[in-house]
Design a protein around this nucleic acid. Structure first.
Length: 105
DNA sequence: ATTCTGACGTGGG
DNA sequence: CCCCACGCCAGAA
């Protein structure tokens, strides 16, 4: 893991590792890349992606399992739509069975 | 170079 | 158990 790779790039790579139909948290990703205190930055990085489909940012939620970044997506419920499309049940901006769906590297 | 902000996490009441 | 306040790192202006 060379430091030559930017923090953002690490986040992208980690998010891409999330299997379909599963979700992860900012803290887990931040921790995996070696910056446990930079959980906020993880979301900031995903925000830069916005229109990119190569990084499934919709599979990343906060530790509560809530779709905090839902408002940042194009549509009002685009994020929820994508998750439900993968089989993830979302209710009131919250992922159901988050404990089971939670994926950790 | 400095300042500010942000899709969070943890600890304390 | 739930709610509030502080801290933290890395980019962008």
């Amino acid at each position: 893991m060379p430091d030559e790779i930017s923090f953002f790039d690490k986040v992208y790579a980690q998010v891409q590792l999330i299997p379909e139909g599963r979700v992860s948290t900012f803290g887990a990703i931040a921790r995996k890349i070696g910056s446990p205190q930079s959980a906020r930055m993880v979301g900031y990085a995903l925000n830069t992606l916005q229109g990119r489909d190569d990084v499934p940012a919709h599979r990343v939620v906060n530790r509560k399992g809530m779709l905090t970044g839902k408002h940042h997506f194009q549509g009002t419920n685009l994020m929820q739509q994508l998750l439900e499309n993968e089989g993830v049940v979302v209710k009131n901006n919250q992922v159901m069975d988050f404990d089971k769906l939670f994926w950790q590297p």
